[in-house]
Design a protein around this nucleic acid. Sequence first.
RNA 1: GAUCCCGUAGCUCAGUUGGAUAGAGCACCAGCCUCCUAAGUUGGGGGUCGCGAGUUCGAAUCUCGUCGGGAUCGCCA
Length: 674
Amino acid sequence: MYSRIYDSIKNQLQEILQDKHDITTELVWSKPHSSNLGDLSFPLFNVAKATSLTPQDLGKELIENFSLTNIIDRLELKGGFLNLFFNQNEFAKLILSEIISLDKYGKSNLKEKKRIIVEHTSANPISPLHIGNIRNSILGDVIGRLYRFLGAKVNLRYYVNDLGRQIAPVIIGYFLLNNDGVKPDTKIDIWIGKIYALMNTFLEIYQIKSEFESLSLIPNKESSSYELSKAELKYYQAKLDTSSFDQQQKERMLKQLQKLLRVQNSLKEKLSELYLQLKNLLDLNIEDLDDLANKYLVSYLAGEDKKIVDKFRKVTQDTLSGHTETLNLYNIYHDDFDWESEVSWGGEVGKILAQLDKKGFLRHDGQALLLENDKLASQLGFKEKYNINYEIPDLILVNSEGIALYPCRDIAYHLHKLEKFDADYCINVIGKDQQLAQLSVRTALYGLGEHAIADKILHYDYEIVTLIGGRMAGREFEYVTCDELFIMAKNEIETILENRDYSAVIKEDIAKKVSISSIRYSILKIDPQKTVTFDAKKAVNPNENTGPFLQYSYARALNILQKAPEKGIDADSIIKSAKQINFDIKKEIEWKMISLMEELPFVLKRALTQLKPDFVANYAFSLASAFHKFYDACPVLIAEDKDSLDTRIAIVFSFTKCLESLFEVMGIDILEKM
RNA sequence: GAUCCCGUAGCUCAGUUGGAUAGAGCACCAGCCUCCUAAGUUGGGGGUCGCGAGUUCGAAUCUCGUCGGGAUCGCCA
């Protein structure tokens, strides 16, 4: 572990306060903005109040009793602040020789004994990953990386939601096409995403048409059950106007019809060939899509019909292989996949419901069952423990048709999730929109008497991502996929690389790594609690972006070290004997570099304890920014004297060590040249 | 209506447990490659930190109120 110089200074001051005044009021330090106010600053107002001295008098006393070390030059008093000035050369020697001596600077054993599960991405396995998913994946990935870097054993899991209602039509469509000999014309998950958008629309059109049919309002029996025409819409509209429905109902149905027509036509345009193929296959083969889809889903839920199970697994596995490919492109890897269907087949949902019911935590409404969150949480001390002082709403567990909904399986899943890795705790990266459902997993576990498990689960929530012109809709094939985003970024980078003198292979490698860093950084830098409207153009614009800026600073630093022999400088031996360097810091920016590099281990620690990857991203930016300024202001290889040369070599090398650590945590690739 | 999150420069965002004169990037204007890669750097303009109270030596930061945006709150996941 790193013990911080700042803390030891604070402790010494604290001891003086204890000795002289018998007070333990805590001093806080901060870094002053301006260098003439010193390097470290202690406001004395609060402490002075406890001693009944003025801040000035207390300050004088502290200065008199403080024993300076070789690393501290002097203490000064200014306006109630005790300002400390380091001996910059000694400080540099201490910090830089430490950085140089370590294999990975900032790596620690803070979480050494901990075993952590991080669940992330967990996207529906029927469409490709899009930019709404990628925030989840990147945050989860970096949290995992942070834990690993700080010594924990990390298990990254993907929960496959393969029991969604929308899934069955996709299976039907996929095999209709497959049996007809239609082959995927693109990456498999994108192909399945197309089928999903189409089948879902066909199903909705079928459903609304059936609704009208059941009211004997059908215009033309010859037309397809899966297609809606403008004429039909007009006909329905007229019928609605004269119908006995109340106004609200009329409006709802009309709105739905209009939306479906719009979506249908946009899909027809975007996916014209596939649209026709699928529609024709449905017309020929499927009489009642709604009924068939229900039968498929019910069968899969039971898991008894092997043929059906295999069909579902084929499609979802295919989609997941596409997800994995995309994730790997983005430097994201999972260790394990958990299937919602397997949780369902485990048969525990029924037992859980019975148990909760027996304890009186379920409210019945017909066949529907609701988890009485607030009652449960109050009775079992959950609200008190987690400091919840509002009323928690009930959550529907079973719908009025008696079908157990998603949260039931999530509860069952979490009952055994931690066992899978013998984990000390489990972090679920899931959007904020699922706050209530996620909270209910924990309250329900309390209800089952599993307090210990519930206390080990953390819902890591983040705000959703929206597109510039509105939300992303998978059902309308209306999204930017992560694969597309990557291509967009890469195209931008490639135009910059055109006038570089690198081979095609190297250019390709650089373009790939820069693109990924650009996208990863643009997401990482933002506080997860902020909603983002994603602007693909900006995420991809090299001028706007910091990922490449970081990589470039590394390449520049490395370049200096690599060029050293040409100038007859043995950088390696300077670095090896860093402790013998007569550090000579001449410029403010050199000191700034050292002062910033000192912070790294503590930034990582803070990012981990607060689960804020953006701390790491923003710190990395300040450091790289300082380096670029240093690079400009302080020539290294043609430094004016030996001491300055040695100092700067040590700074440059230490900087590369810092970035190596930061890149590892952020999942950004190192580039030796750009 | 209730609950949670957000509101800082034209745009995108930083701003540690309250600390000294609120910071970057983009965009705009004007400079810097005979010197380690200009994906860089220097300078300039641009802010009543949504608004109003309160707490205190001190508030962008804490409390209360208020306005605005997003999400959730009984059958999607």
